[in-house]
Amino acid sequence: MSTGKRIAYFLGLPILLILVWWAATLGSTNFYVPTPGKLVETFWRVWISNRFFTDFMPSIIRLFIGLAATIVLGVVLGVLIGSFRWLRSLFEPLLEFFRAVPPPVLVPLLMLLIGINDQMKIVVIISGAIWPVLLNTVEGVRAVDQVLSDTSRTYRITGMARLRYLVLPGASPQIMTGVRQCLSIGLILMVISEMFGSSAGLGFTIVLFQRAFAVPEMWSGIAVLGLVGIGLSAIFQLVERRVLRWYHGLREVQRDN
């Protein structure tokens, strides 16, 4: 496919949709839907301002701290549980239960236990987003190839070296699947944790706009959350493509056969 065609495919539908939106709101005074121009103007005024530092950045920092802690904790615990059969048997039903608890119900619980502060918001993210990472890591560690494991043993690759050269790379496709799921849950929980008795942050701000019937401002907040989601997913894809280059190549070869 030529570059021009690719650009046309990439931008075609989005441009069409924006045109439809523009045409539909042209001359209308619909209270709920602002025009594209009005939204862009509002977005600029609301978010490229002091609010960027008081509401946007703190939320994003909490999100990143929460996600980083989630991934580290999830992988460490997952490797531990995945490496010992008795630990796995011991924790399996409990983990099934914790995974099934809808994470937002943990917000009132953690508010009670920790209080309303930054730590609570970060713990909310960790306690809800850790399960996909943890469970996928357990599966990945458990499924390390037997022949590869025997090979490592005959070359006396044990302990930390085994973890570094065999277990972690072997489990990495599964771990990345878990990480991808944890990103979207983490973002949801970041927003929800700020909708409860908070006085700053992205979640708080868009609810504030909605309560004040500031509709274009509210839409601009929704757009910010959308952009954060897209940004996270772009970062993930970049990292994933690097980390799992071997895996995608391997799968392609297997598919061709």
Binding site: Q146, D150, Y165, W246
Partner: peptide
């Protein structure tokens, strides 16, 4: 002092290396 070569070459080499 011992090395082993397995039958399953596809599974005895580290695919990520």
């Amino acid at each position: 002092a011992m090395a082993v070569v397995f039958q399953e070459y596809g599974r005895s080499l580290f695919p990520w290396m």
